[in-house]
Write a protein that binds this DNA or RNA. Structure first.
Ligand SMILES: [Mn+2]
Ligand SMILES: [Mn+2]
Ligand SMILES: [Mn+2]
Ligand SMILES: [Mn+2]
Lengths: 218, 218
DNA sequence: TAAATTTGTTAGATTAATCTAACTTTATAC
DNA sequence: GTATAAAGTTAGATTAATCTAACAAATTTA
């Protein structure tokens, strides 16, 4: 059994992995707000548990075992977020911090029950995929809104950033998953977009916002 | 903020307190399965935090602050048990271990929402009172079934022991909260009771069982 | 390519929570 | 009322997780 602390390192390793599955000690250190020597020593411990491939001065990589264990924690996190939104009535901006704690609960029955009551959902309230019981997780091929062109009509399917501030901003503009957006124009200078959706006939979205919204063509 | 470990000491202190509010180091040590020197040093730490009155070789006592903080953890535990049974469909024998973990979640919103969805319950699934937001908890004056006499008709209102084994035993006999029992006879030698209730016209209950069932006169 | 910067490691200290061994105080038995 | 047993404390060690300071390797800059 991994400690809560070890679980948080595994989760961070998975989410920081690049396309090659590599993570730098420094990036992990900054992400967790834990000093580099502490990270190095934890990596040796996780390597001893066959969860991480560790070689001095080389980038870190999760083993298959490490990837699976990390994905199963993500699974608990996202099932929890979905449960909090769907069954308890929380807003999508309220659930992350609670899920950060509940993801460490050790009780297969508890998460199996959530899954059942939710009808075995594939996505969490932010559009992120919920890994299956074997730790398999697939992201659909979404585009960023920022990559779309004038005249495109797209549907919001996921958010990249899930900070309170960003989600509250989206709430204030009535932007949520499923909303269909038409791109009226794109400012060449800073990539700001002017869009229309629902009752909002002329909203301006900064590139920072458009970079954080995943969409699919309608 | 108290650590998870400190919270478990506080809870144990409250539940082991006698009528004078006193707890022995030795009893606490056995209850938590932690050696006495460890307990002594933790008591000094809790005393420094004004949660426990500690004097060498004297019995331990929670301060008012300590009592309140302990009761608020019990509140979270019992609200959780009630939620698991009422809203998620768990059996009363399945919820204690999950609640032991969830009681340490730091999120007033989460427990407030549970409370609201449950309609502000006063009792948990085992008939124990749920302390209010100020840590106030009152046990009604119940009798033990073992204290009742031949001919009495009583209703089960709470269980003292909440171990899996005991609750599974009760399930196997279809004994649950609210069941009305008539006492047919009491064996003088060992206080075994012969009772009838529902479809069970002649069940024999050992004194060990009768000691653990709280009832009120019908 | 040599210097400067960034990244990563080693060594040693600290804190929380635990333990065992040895000792002291209090309670119980004779 | 002393001897024995039980309860409680003190001292010192251990483990997990963190830190700072000093050093080493790798990368970037000039
Ligand atoms: Mn989240
Ligand atoms: Mn999410
Ligand atoms: Mn319980
Ligand atoms: Mn209970």
């Amino acid at each position: 059994m991994n400690s809560l602390v070890e679980e948080n390192y595994l989760k961070a390793l998975l989410s920081l992995s690049n396309d090659k599955g590599e993570v730098n000690v420094n990036d992990l250190s900054k992400h967790l707000d834990i000093k580099m020597p502490t990270v190095t020593s934890m990596m040796k411990k996780l390597a001893a548990k066959k969860l991480v491939h560790y070689e001095s001065y080389k980038p870190l990589r999760l083993t298959e075992k490490g990837k699976k264990e990390a994905a199963l924690i993500i699974r608990k996190h996202r099932l929890t977020e979905m449960y909090l939104v769907e069954k308890m009535g929380f807003g999508w901006e309220q659930v992350h911090n609670i899920a950060e704690q509940i993801e460490h609960i050790q009780s297969p029955e508890f998460f199996a029950k959530m899954d059942e009551l939710l009808g075995y959902p594939k996505l969490d309230p932010h559009g992120s995929p919920i890994p299956d019981k074997n730790g398999k997780m697939v992201w659909k091929e979404y585009s960023k809104l920022s990559e779309c062109k004038q005249g495109d009509t797209v549907k919001i399917v996921a958010v990249i950033n899930t900070s309170d501030e960003f989600l509250n901003f989206l709430n204030s503009r009535e932007l949520s998953l499923g909303v269909k957006i038409k791109i009226k124009s794109v400012e060449l200078f800073d990539n700001t977009m002017v869009v229309s959706y629902g009752k909002h006939l002329l909203e301006t979205l900064s590139n920072m916002v458009c970079e954080r919204l995943l969409v699919e063509k309608v």
